[in-house]
Simulated scan of single mutants.
Amino acid sequence: MATEIKNITKFFGKTQALKTINLSIKDGEFIAILGPSGCGKTTLLKLLAGFDSPTDGIIMIDHQNVSEKNNSTPPEKRNIGMVFQSFALWPHMTVKDHIKFPLLHHQFLANDLKNNIEKRIDEVLNIVELQTYANRMPHELSGGQKQRVALARAIAPKPALLLMDEPLSSLDAELRMEMRREIQSLHRMTGATIVYVTHDQEEALAMADRIVVMNNGQIQQVGTPREIYRKPNTEFVAKFVGKANLIHGKWLNEVTFKPYSVSIQSNWMNIEVSSDLRAKNLCPIRPEQFSLSYTGEGIEGEIMNVQFQGKEIHYTVNIGSDLIAIHEDSQNKPFYIGDTVYVNLNQKNNVPSLITI
Rank of each mutant, 00 (worst) to 15 (best):
A2F: 09
T9I: 06
F11L: 10
Q16C: 11
L18Y: 10
L18T: 10
L18A: 07
T20L: 04
T20C: 04
I21E: 06
I21N: 06
S24M: 07
S24F: 15
D27Q: 15
G28F: 02
G35S: 11
G35H: 05
C39N: 01
L44N: 08
L45E: 10
P54R: 07
I59D: 10
H63R: 14
V83R: 03
W90A: 07
H92M: 08
K96N: 10
I99A: 07
F101G: 00
L103Q: 09
H105G: 00
Q107E: 15
N111T: 13
N111S: 14
N111D: 15
I117D: 10
I117M: 09
K119L: 13
R120P: 02
N126M: 02
E129W: 00
T132A: 14
T132E: 15
Y133N: 08
M137P: 03
E140R: 03
E140W: 02
E140Y: 05
G144T: 11
Q145H: 06
A150W: 01
A152M: 09
D165W: 03
S170F: 01
E174W: 01
E174S: 14
M177C: 05
E178T: 14
S185F: 09
T190Y: 01
T190W: 04
T193Q: 06
I194W: 02
T198H: 04
T198G: 00
E203M: 00
L205H: 03
I211A: 05
I211W: 06
V212C: 04
M214R: 04
N216I: 00
I219G: 02
I219Y: 02
Y229P: 00
R230Q: 15
P232A: 03
T234A: 06
V237Q: 08
F240C: 01
V241G: 02
G242Y: 08
H248T: 13
N253E: 01
V255A: 13
I264N: 08
N270H: 11
I271W: 12
S274P: 12
S274D: 14
S275K: 14
A279G: 13
P287V: 07
E288C: 08
E288V: 12
E288I: 13
S293D: 14
S293R: 06
G298N: 02
E302R: 14
V306R: 12
F308E: 01
K311L: 14
H314D: 12
T316V: 13
D322F: 07
A325D: 14
I326D: 04
I326F: 08
H327M: 10
D329G: 00
F335N: 09
I337Y: 09
G338N: 11
D339V: 11
D339A: 11
Y342D: 00
V343W: 00
V351S: 15
